[in-house]
Write a protein that binds this DNA or RNA. Structure first.
Lengths: 242, 242
DNA sequence: TAGTGGTCTAGACCACCTG
DNA sequence: AGGTGGTCTAGACCACTAG
């Protein structure tokens, strides 16, 4: 059951990505598009506001809506607050490159008070602890630690951890969608130990991203901490006022 | 002319910040709040969706709306995609600390092709080039380079660059609000030259943030590049599905 | 079953931009 | 003046959660 305004948003996003509109070009007005898609203006506006937040169009009061120039780049972009790159490394990049994982460890342990608090669970709660090195085209680019509440996801097959999408597995397993991801980005340097795992020199800059993921029913199931090579990743952000 | 849904959003945000609701507590339903504020559900929902994007509440289908735990921290948070910290360093932090600036240079120059493209202007367009070191409680924490289109803002008094808010000045000067800020975050290390300007050791990690700022009529007026001490800043991000 | 958020309609009026 | 996006109303029905 996909909402109509999501379908319309994706349809127009596709038009932009397929270059059916040129960069900077004015697209049809809200009233025209509402007529075309057979919805009211309110519904169409929901689509267009989303498209604006995702950085594909700019809405200018009194003028119209215009296709934004979209930045393409040589490095990998982790989109913030827009798009779906939040929904997992595999899902995001597997179309443009070969994604693989090296499972360092997968064990069950009890939550420390700190992690329990992040997961809104009791200290001592049984968790999966997973450490993976992730590779793009066979080059190691990041280390990711995940703590996953075993009360929410009891079993995690190692086949999922090798190459599959963990988030996709969880959505299938629970029958619920992922709705919240609250994260914090920090800059730091790789320690020798971590640099060795990635096969790079120590003292290389990194982007550290930590955060909690929740399902649509509010269940916090995953706390993760990833250490990303700063020469391989950038984070894009589109802020829109009001 | 402030929209009703913005007023309502701020009113409820204030209730949360003033602890009139406890963390995790359920707040009144949409229908109740719509009645209280004398608006329809559609209007109230706009308020609550904003509040959710800003990370203050979580909306759970079938259950209700709940106050999110808000992360307070010792370091300074640059909020992404939510809140207004995008709208300038001064405006964001002057309530919690003494903000000052050290003006390194302010000169007029002609746009290179690269910067002209960012500003959607012609190469050779006259620009302000401004380099400032910014301080929190007299500690230098970042270096910021700005290129501002002189065709949009002709005069920039040095009093504004010293301690005032540049963005506030621009909104007053042009009579328009800032609507877009598209930025990219990268991790890197401070060079010796930059480290010297901040009085720190070279090789310290930094968060580099670059981006273009536009007014509500779509005018790109500012391209900026800031080099932030990674031990002083974090960047927060709230992603909400759908 | 009752209450919650999620979606959608068919209008209306306002604010901004251009000719 | 005419077209654009921005806001708002007063309903309706659907999907999810709980007791």
């Amino acid at each position: 059951m996909v909402a109509r305004y999501i379908e319309i948003k994706n349809s127009i996003k596709d038009d932009i990505l397929q270059k059916r509109y040129q960069v900077g070009e004015k697209i049809p007005s809200e009233r025209e598009l509402a007529l075309i898609y057979g919805v009211t203006r309110v519904t169409l506006q929901k689509s267009m506001h989303l498209l604006e937040q995702e950085g594909f169009i700019e809405r200018i009061h009194g003028k119209g809506m215009f296709v934004a120039r979209v930045i393409d780049d040589d490095v990998y972009m982790l989109n913030n607050g827009a798009g779906d790159s939040v929904l997992g490394f595999s899902r995001e990049f597997h179309h443009q490159a070969k994604i693989s994982s090296q499972l360092i460890t997968h064990q069950m342990l009890c939550a420390t008070p700190e992690i329990a608090q992040q997961l809104e669970a009791q200290p001592g709660q049984v968790l999966h602890y997973i450490r993976r090195v992730r590779l793009i085209d066979n080059t190691p680019v990041l280390i990711e630690d995940s703590w996953i509440n075993a009360a929410v996801i009891a079993d995690i097959p190692n086949t999922v951890l090798d190459g599959g999408s963990l988030y996709e597995y969880i959505e299938t397993y629970t029958g619920k969608k992922i709705k919240f991801y609250n994260s914090v980005i920090e800059g730091d340097l790789f320690t020798k130990e971590m640099a060795d795992m990635l096969g790079i020199a120590p003292g290389v800059p990194m982007l550290k991203v930590s955060g909690v993921t929740k399902l649509e029913d509010g269940t916090a199931f995953n706390y993760s901490l990833s250490y990303n090579r700063a020469d391989k990743f950038k984070i894009k952000n589109n802020w829109v006022g009001k």
